[in-house]
Nucleic acid binder design. Structure first.
Lengths: 212, 212
DNA sequence: GAAGTATACGGAGGCTTCCTCCGTTTTGCA
DNA sequence: TGCAAAACGGAGGAAGCCTCCGTATACTTC
């Protein structure tokens, strides 16, 4: 379920060391892009991943392909975490956590944004596919909350994504705490109007999220 | 009037050779960006302008500053041409010509677009200033047409710009002829509803623009 | 579990581009 | 005309890109 067939183009499963290095590279690249922007030297990324530059180029023949892979990987992680949160928390809390996770993911992708935008303009499927996955994850969380009666049922996954995404985009860089607060506010709105129980009584432990 | 004090930071007028080389560089850069995108080697631009790389760097210390200067220069030229057209043509024809000129200018700026967008995101004044100048030029043309009774009077410069710009942006690259046709269509709409004279009778020579 | 083979690793090195620095040339002024 | 300030131009060091190929590692077969 979490084991996703990453980019193996139907030929043959990657060798174990190749899979490991690919993950190391994606992690290092995400960190480097977040810290230094999309222009960071590829050799730096290879070094901080602990692999040679040749290995990087074998996995990602161009800078763009690396940026794209990092982005898809981040979306993967975000969507998988929706399932994980739903397994371990009540639906409304899972939703709240996921929305905050979303904010943090966007914040770390700031350095890549201009490169990403250009790539999405050139290849709309990149945008469509990742968006569809994120919408699916959001829908799952919303549905679970609606079924439990702790989240209002008249909000679609696409709407939620648009709202949270919009908040993240409109608040200036270096201020993801502002995004975080606004998204928490949005979440409170989602709880109001839930069908079965009075909104604030449903969360058994009155969370620290909305305080302050 | 056309003699604009380009970037001389209030210190001293540029020497004659410096002015000349600056113009050569802007022209060469515009052509190079249009032909090869914003990543074209700066040395190529210097060579095709017939100057040394040192001269390029003296005028434009960074690639971004060159891109920005090219963009501002293009907007300058476009806005000045509005005056020139108004001097030599009836207002409605001047407007039609200017709109087509706009399409061509956008088409040649395609290669710079992604770089430009990133720069505008980083520095909103670049967008605001150039936009204000373009709006002023459009307003002048519209007002002249409205005063002559050959162009409807209820359209603002900002609206015209938004419409023409939108058409240019939405039609795919490599298809500026489509933009051209759509903009011609838009122009016909502007002529209809003109106050004094019947729309199609005002242009003394029935132009070739709207045929086909 | 040993041998063989396909696959992946890694970094040296050639190439391109960036950008500074400074000797030379040109311009504008007195 | 002579001179000082300004501009020119390109050599060259630094940095990054990306390929290539000898070496190392993981799977497969017996």
């Amino acid at each position: 379920m979490i084991d996703i067939d990453r980019s193996a183009p139907s030929d043959r499963p990657l060798r174990a060391d190749a899979v490991r290095n690919r993950e190391l590279l994606l992690d290092a690249a995400a960190a480097a892009f977040a810290a230094q922007g999309a222009d960071v030297p590829l050799e730096d990324i290879a070094r901080s991943a602990g692999v040679g530059i040749g290995t990087l180029y074998r996995h990602f023949p161009s800078r763009d392909s690396l940026v794209e892979a990092v982005y898809r990987h981040e979306v993967d992680v975000l969507c998988e975490s929706a399932d994980r949160l739903l397994d371990s928390l009540p639906p409304d809390q899972a939703l709240a956590e996921w929305m905050q996770l979303f904010v943090r993911h966007v914040a770390t992708k700031r350095g890549m944004m201009s490169a990403l935008k250009a790539m999405m303009a050139a290849d709309a499927t990149l945008f469509d596919q990742t968006r569809a996955r994120a919408v699916a994850a959001a829908t799952k969380l919303l549905d679970a909350g609606a079924a439990a009666g702790t989240v209002r049922a008249d909000v679609k996954g696409a709407d939620l994504l648009r709202a949270v995404g919009g908040i993240c985009m409109s608040t200036d860089q270096e201020r993801s705490d502002a995004s975080s607060r606004l998204v928490a506010l949005l979440f409170d709105g989602l709880r109001h109007g839930a069908s079965s129980a009075p909104p604030l009584a449903t969360a058994s432990a009155p969370g620290s999220r909305t305080s302050g």
